[in-house]
């Protein structure tokens, strides 16, 4: 694991953003946020984070569309993506995984659970 642990959190609920930011920052991550479906892909391209946490239901553009764009882009494809959803229907999960999400978490989740997932994602990637 390198010391460049930067995560981009794309989530529109301010309170959830706040919670995740707090938990990850405490673990030594550098957390950047984006609260919109619009321009999400551009933001990823700009920031080049080590990990993207992406909510499915975003204003103006679905997280699944954003995921598809990310996985279609040669430069961004390698960035691991963790999807969040509050809907918890299994078709949505399957779609996300098929498009190429690296993992999928259903809200609400425990902080520990999330941290473990993030760690295992980072361990799996170079």
């Amino acid at each position: 694991m390198s010391d460049s642990k930067r995560v981009l959190l794309i989530e529109d609920e301010p309170n959830i953003t706040e919670a995740i930011r707090f938990v990850l920052t405490r673990e030594g991550w550098h957390v950047q946020t984006h609260a919109e479906g619009r321009d999400a892909v551009e933001t990823v391209r700009e920031r080049k984070p080590d990990l993207v946490i992406l909510d499915v239901m975003l204003p103006n553009r679905s997280g699944l569309d954003i995921l598809a764009d990310l996985k279609a882009d040669a430069d961004l494809r390698t960035i691991p993506v963790m999807m969040l959803t509050a809907r918890g229907s299994s078709p949505e999960r399957e779609t996300a995984l098929r498009i190429g999400a690296d993992c999928f978490m259903t809200k609400p989740f425990s902080n520990r659970e999330m941290l473990d997932t993030v760690r295992s994602l980072m361990a799996g990637s170079p």
């Binding site: 609920e13 959830i16 919670a19 239901m57 229907s89 809200k107 609400p108 989740f109």
Partner: peptide
């Protein structure tokens, strides 16, 4: 489900 889970997520995390 969505409407219930969203506030629950914040409540649970905090």
């Amino acid at each position: 489900s969505h409407e219930l889970r969203t506030p629950m997520t914040s409540i649970r995390a905090f």
